[in-house]
């Protein structure tokens, strides 16, 4: 069989694997829905949770398609489709592919057509390198959960603060990341203000939604506030970028949207 990075059989295998991953999601969803019914959770809350999750996912998922396109120029379509549908991300996969190619004396994006051996080598480096999380969760996930439960049994207040601190810690790191190029502003790089202003636009829209919610008492605003604010922030990036300019290394910026 003659190899091609876009061979139909690779598409077929990738489609089957993605079906298996989706089956896992469906399995857990059905299990959770059954449990929700058993403990009499309000149907309305479950419906809302499903709807909010669907709406929230649309914009980030479209940005993943952009990442598939970016990688497809070097690796064909099925491999990026597979890697970005399971476990991976643009930054992870690009680095793994580059390291594998570099080990074979090649460079990503050089335009050289890959043979089967090179393709399999890249796939193995990508797969093995990123397996830590999925293998470790069954090993230590239960212990971590038990730790949280025993923490709650000892001191309920501290457990809640501990949990909130984890959330705030993660959000703080990403808010800091928004400012990672900010020092360029001092040397005239106004483009470094774009992510900061986008973040502020999105935050202001979230505040407006909150204000509308409390004035009008429309509870449905809660379900749409985050996607509305996020899409508003992303939309604001377009005029802001044309006003303030773009980062000199455009590829690095693209990677940001697909991190993890």
């Amino acid at each position: 069989m003659e190899f091609s990075v876009n061979h139909w059989i690779i598409y077929l295998i990738v489609a089957l694997i993605i079906c298996a991953v989706t089956a896992q999601a469906v399995f857990f969803m059905i299990r959770a829905l059954k449990r929700a019914k058993k403990i009499n959770m309000p149907k309305e809350k479950i419906k809302k949770a499903i709807l909010s999750s669907v709406i929230f996912t649309i914009a980030p998922a479209i940005s993943i398609i952009v990442c598939v396109m970016t990688l497809s120029h070097s690796l064909g379509i099925p491999l990026p489709w597979y890697r970005l549908s399971v476990v991976g991300s643009l930054s992870y996969e690009t680095i793994a592919a580059q390291n594998a190619l570099s080990g074979m004396g090649m460079t990503l994006g050089s335009g050289t057509a890959l043979n089967a051996s090179q393709f399999v080598t890249i796939l193995l480096v990508m797969t093995i390198s990123i397996m830590a999380g999925m293998l470790l969760v069954p090993l230590i996930g239960k212990k971590l959960q038990k730790g949280m439960i025993s923490l709650g049994n000892k001191d309920k207040n501290w457990r809640d603060i501990f949990q909130n601190s984890l959330f705030i810690g993660m959000i703080s790191a990403f808010l800091g990341f928004v400012f990672c190029d900010f020092s360029a502003v001092f040397s005239g790089g106004t483009w470094a203000l774009v992510p900061v202003l986008v973040m502020l636009s999105s935050a202001v829209m979230m505040l407006i939604c909150g204000l509308l919610r409390s004035i009008t008492k429309w509870r449905w605003i809660n379900d749409y506030a985050l996607p509305i604010s996020m899409i508003f922030g992303m939309a604001m990036a377009i005029p802001l970028t044309s006003w303030l300019g773009t980062m000199p290394v455009a590829q690095a910026v693209t990677a940001v949207a697909c991190l993890f």
Binding site: P195, V198, S229, V256, A257
Partner: peptide, 11 residues
């Protein structure tokens, strides 16, 4: 698309 994360974490 480049500004997905700032928009997400701002809100």
């Amino acid at each position: 698309f480049d500004q997905l994360l700032p928009a997400l974490f701002g809100a």
